[in-house]
């Protein structure tokens, strides 16, 4: 067994056969997966890396808080609405805004519609091939 230290302080088992999948397809964005497999075909170590960075946190700084949802939404085009809703909640929380019950219901309906729809897309367009 050979242990190595990563620059950010993790120790990893670098023994056995190393398998790299880069790019990982049928996901949003870009990703790399590396695993180490021992002689019994058991994964001993796995690392996944997001291989893109756009700096949305940096871009959001100094913006009108009413617009934050639209920027945050662009994190992912597959689950857009969820990011937007989370951002809106964060802004409301920061400004101590209470929303009416009907607004909450509408948001829940939108979120659930997205979830139902996303399951179909994920299964038939992305996941089914596996």
């Amino acid at each position: 067994m050979s242990m190595i230290q990563t620059p950010n302080g993790f120790s990893l088992d670098d023994s056995g056969k190393r398998v790299v999948v880069d790019p990982v397809t049928r996901i949003e964005g870009h990703m790399r997966c590396e695993v180490n497999v021992d002689e019994n075909n058991i994964i001993r170590n796995a690392v996944s890396t997001g291989t893109m960075w756009r700096g949305l946190e940096v871009i959001l700084r100094g913006r009108d808080p009413r617009d934050a949802w639209a920027f945050t939404q662009r994190i992912c085009g597959v689950c857009t609405g969820t990011h937007a809703l989370t951002s809106v909640r964060a802004v409301e929380d920061a400004l101590n805004i209470q929303i009416p019950e009907n607004a909450n219901s509408i948001r829940n309906i939108m979120q659930l519609a997205l979830q139902a729809h996303d399951h179909l897309v994920h299964f038939y367009h992305l996941h089914a091939l596996d």
């Binding site: 790299v20 999948v21 880069d22 790019p23 990982v24 397809t25 049928r26 996901i27 367009h125």
Partner: peptide, 13 residues
């Protein structure tokens, strides 16, 4: 098209 293609990793490349 890495969003909908079956291959991944070096096969894709």
């Amino acid at each position: 098209d890495d969003t909908i293609m079956a291959a991944a990793g070096h096969e894709a490349e």
